[in-house]
Design a protein around this nucleic acid. Structure first.
Lengths: 124, 124
DNA sequence: TTCCTTATTGATAATGATTATCATTATTAT
DNA sequence: ATAATAATGATAATCATTATCAATAAGGAA
């Protein structure tokens, strides 16, 4: 694997994000640094970085998100503005232990609570 | 809303399924009853039936699934054969209570544990 | 430093799931 | 039976993501 400008820019875009961005959002942030960068390259590097365990890919309804936080944790998604944020006080390891009874291997968990966030509730 | 043969066939296909089928699978099952039925009609009725709370739509990575079980519960998905089944002993209401601190409204939850199922582990 | 090999890129086509469009069909109230 | 219109079937469109492929550039060898 070669060290490219593009890969570094994509990694930094995720590491500097606190909002669980989509690939399209990451593309925009990368273009601020490197205007020539392409959406396919962003996806390729997001996939590569996930496999290297440098970032995490989140399967969330309406489009995948990317996360600098590596450990499993729950997320909230607003059905109105589509913002995503962490829910920290959920015991993921309990859920995984419960699952282990009926399966061979547990690889990960997707846990999204859907609802309306506080700021969307205010503006309506 | 009118009572159509297609809507009944789609509803029955979900009610008679124990395997959390995709829309495409439901189409196949409907065609056994009503060969002329169309994929767009299946989607339209699955959406309508979800809104009427007769069935449940599950947002699962790799394509939505449909469920006759109405109450929130966790699912397991095999990354190899893509089978989906229920995990019953997860306390969903605890998770929802934990989320309520930072949001306005909780509407639902998507909870999928990913891994390898027992039969896929056997065959490899 | 210059050249060579080949991994990576950018541009774009392709895919898969889902929704939108629209003329035709069929349900239900009259 | 008829008229009004909701639902259907066929298909085009959309959206997120991946695949293809010629051109570019990273990094080791000469």
């Amino acid at each position: 694997m070669r060290e490219t400008k593009q890969k570094q820019v994509v990694l930094n875009a995720v590491l500097n994000s606190c909002d669980h961005p989509t690939a399209e959002t990451i593309l925009m942030r990368c273009k601020a640094e490197l205007p020539s960068v392409n959406l396919a390259t962003v996806y390729r590097n997001l996939n590569a970085l996930s496999l290297e365990n440098k970032i995490r890919r989140l399967a969330i309804s309406g489009g995948d998100r990317f996360d600098k936080t590596l450990h499993s944790h729950a997320h909230f998604k607003c059905v109105n503005c589509h913002c995503v944020f962490d829910i920290d006080n959920v015991n993921i390891s309990d859920i995984i232990e419960n699952a282990k009874g009926n399966v061979n291997t547990v690889l990960g968990i997707d846990l999204t609570v859907n609802g309306v966030c506080l700021s969307c509730a205010k503006n309506s």
